[in-house]
Write a protein that binds this DNA or RNA. Structure first.
Lengths: 297, 297
DNA sequence: AAGGTGTTTTGCATTATTGCAAAGGCGAAC
DNA sequence: GTTCGCCTTTGCAATAATGCAAAACACCTT
């Protein structure tokens, strides 16, 4: 992008729906505003507004730009705000991206604990339905199931965790017993939507001897809820198991998967002390909570 | 903020740790880079870098700015990207903010359903531990438990939902029976951390006749997990109830709360057709799912 | 139908920003 | 100890961006 400032005036024009209106807001001459919109359109090779004597109105391409420009605005505004006070305690906002398994069954407790110790701290958990692109800065740090392939990101191993086949006791009572992997074929199995598997580490099914799944979702949470309600059998995180009391592991000796959580951070942040401290607390919390929950499972 | 473009060069300097290095990246003269950093510091009345003959290094204030500037960069980059193709189908990224109750027990299924119908669609759920500030553009839309007090935001009522006192059957078996509100005093109760209640609509406790809670968290998910594991009694969303089979309502005739979900959007977006369509699907989904789950509870 | 008010657009003088080149410093290597 | 290389900083000319004023246009009111 040539000049970020053009986005600022784009926003103003999109809101005012006129060059002159935007000019008033920006304390800039309408002519200047018009020229910069022109420059922006030229640079992006796209028509953002339809001109008329009544003003400027967004095109579809302009509409698409709007939300992103507004997000940029928010980042800028926060930047201006935050560069004020702030003492030595852990405060401010931290945004964590995480696959939805850990986001639902692991992080809530951990984050709540950290927040309790640091009143000024605000934590946001972004449950990701896909691999997190931290280089795009969607969050300050991210939990991932495999180290990032590309980009210069800082990686730190958090902990291993286990997964097993599981179903509700209720389901097992109502269906034929499972004594070997072959028996699985006669059961309803739950898993990822194959097209949407965002990380090969998540392709549990084949490793667990499940071929075609009959119930599929891209959301671990949805899968878990299916299992919970007795819809079938799925690969379940051990640390999630205790979130639904009726669950029992199936063939734990024959099917047992191990995966790893990594904490990914942006290298820029290595010099930001605040985030270093938070990352350390988070890492400790994840390790503690996984081992606690797996002991229960 | 005076000129957003200064943030772009700030980022380059922070990364290169020198004016000349940044100049190479930006194809700008080091002198220009230096002058613009100077201007930025003047505008914010803060020293971002410590100068030396070896280069520029961030001050603590500069560190704080870094993460925000990077987020702005991400927004800009996405903006440039997305303004390309995209057909008539529902595609692209949509970010939803939601209180963690709905984020955990309501949205996953709904969003998975919508995604299934629209392959090109990416949805992010931001589980908020506090009231969502949509005017700060943390998300494209947000679910809230009360209409926003300030700001010119678009509000749309989604649906009413119910809450009741609940505990696990297990817990009830092990403790004295509850026949009236007075009996509650002899039980362990779970609720919000009073200091951290971000919305008075969430102050269930007093309305439910619970005075001091003995187990508290700012996270509904954590509270729910306490209830599930038989730690005590709490106010629980009806639509979450079926997520843990062993739960039973307590005194449903005497204590019954009703709250409302609202969908909040930024007025800018009213002209963005893509988000309008998504919002409509989301609203339908929430209504359908709440009534389905409440029937089960 | 005609004039008034809002809009965008264009030409030109002014102003601000930029690039270049030289100067001044600090550290490392010879 | 001195020189070399890399950095920042400053002065000055070239360049680009801006504001102003006027023109062209559409719409609404009279």
């Amino acid at each position: 992008m040539a000049d970020w400032d053009d986005l600022r005036i784009f926003l103003a024009v999109a809101r005012a729906e006129s060059l002159s209106g935007a000019g008033k807001l920006l304390k800039l001459d309408p002519a200047t505003v018009g020229r910069r919109i022109g420059r922006l359109e030229e640079g992006m090779a796209v028509r953002l507004f339809t001109r008329s004597a009544q003003g400027y109105t967004l095109t579809v391409e302009g509409q698409r730009l709007l939300a992103h420009a507004a997000r940029a605005e928010q980042a800028v505004a926060e930047a201006m705000e935050e560069v004020g006070s702030e003492g030595s305690g852990l405060t401010g906002q931290v945004r964590i991206g995480a696959p939805d398994g850990s986001a639902n069954y692991l992080l809530p407790q951990i984050v709540a604990g950290i927040c309790a110790d640091h009143p000024g701290l605000e934590v946001q958990i972004v449950a990701q339905p896909r691999v997190f692109n931290l280089s795009k800065r969607e969050a300050d740090m991210a939990i991932a199931v495999s180290p990032p392939a590309s980009g210069h990101l800082t990686v730190q191993k958090l902990t291993d965790y286990k997964l097993h086949l599981a179903a509700s006791r209720d389901y097992l009572d109502r269906h034929p017993p499972i004594r070997s992997l072959d028996d699985l074929k006669q059961h309803r199995t739950i898993g990822y939507i194959q097209d949407l598997v965002f990380d090969k580490e998540l392709d549990y099914q084949s490793e667990a001897g499940m071929e075609a799944v009959t119930l599929a979702s891209n959301s671990v949470s949805v899968q878990f809820n299916w299992v919970r309600t007795g819809a079938g059998i799925a690969v379940v995180h051990d640390f999630a198991m205790s979130a639904a009391p009726g669950l029992v592991k199936i063939l734990p000796d024959q099917v047992s998967l191990t995966r790893t959580f990594y904490l990914i951070r942006h290298p820029d942040d290595r010099r930001v002390e605040r985030l270093n401290r938070f990352a350390e607390l988070l890492a400790q919390g994840v390790r503690r909570e996984v081992s606690r929950l797996e002991a229960l499972a």
